[in-house]
């Protein structure tokens, strides 16, 4: 009998590819975010509002990840920004290889901001680095204030939390202070925004944060 010692991280392939992407992004002075959440928290809605605000100020492109359909890409396309839809056909997360392939159809030197909207899933996308500058987790008030405790990994691995659908606070059983506290307990370094994609509340602050991060 013989033993081969390996010592390899199981997701090392993805991490290596993500590091290559990060390099590529850096070379092109691109600011890149990876938006994650459970299905329906409002990722695309926030993105639509964000594009409206930032149009004319910066050039951006979008990669949409969904299990099926190009519905989200169609929504973004209306704003005349370059968008690539990745359909995972059942896959529960985007990985660095899928993003690399999608980049073939985007001219990176034309843009300064790239948004990757991940597959709606509060578990799996946490483990996959896509080469982004920041992972942004969106949690909507209708999902309940206990979610950071129940899905800690996503909140540990994210840098920014957007609490969306604050317009619904009067109608839902969600204590926003509790939600914040729970999230900050999981990850004290989280920066928190509160938004409503419906009323536009909080979108200005969010867009200012983006503009401050665009690389000169």
């Amino acid at each position: 009998m013989s033993i081969i010692t390996i010592e390899r991280k199981v997701l090392e392939k993805n991490d290596e590819l993500a590091a290559q992407l990060r390099n590529e992004f850096k070379k092109n002075k691109l600011f890149v975010i990876n938006i994650v959440s459970s299905p329906g928290s409002g990722k695309t809605s926030i993105l639509e509002k964000t594009i409206e605000k930032l149009k004319g100020k910066i050039n951006l492109a979008v990669i949409e990840g969904d299990v099926q359909t190009d519905l989200d890409a169609k929504r973004v396309e209306k704003y005349n920004v370059p968008v690539v839809q990745i359909v995972t056909n059942g896959g529960c997360h985007l990985d660095a290889k899928l993003v690399k392939d999608a980049l073939d159809s985007i001219n990176l030197s034309d843009i300064s901001f790239l948004v990757i909207e991940n597959v709606g899933n509060l578990v799996c996308p946490a483990g996959y680095d896509l080469g982004e500058d920041y992972k942004i987790v969106v949690l909507s008030t209708t999902e309940g204030d206990d979610k950071p405790l129940k899905y800690p990994k996503m909140f540990i691995n994210s840098s920014i939390l957007i609490i969306n659908k604050v317009d619904l606070l009067p109608y839902v059983n969600c204590n926003i202070k509790e939600l914040r506290d729970n999230a900050l307990m999981i990850n004290p370094d989280l920066k928190v925004f509160e938004t409503s994609a419906t009323t536009g509340a909080g979108i200005d602050d969010w867009c200012e944060w983006i503009l401050a991060n665009i690389k000169k």
């Binding site: 033993i3 081969i4 010592e7 390899r8 991280k9």
Partner: peptide, 9 residues
Amino acid sequence: EMRVTEVEL
């Protein structure tokens, strides 16, 4: 973590 450490032949 999640690591492969050894393969036995």
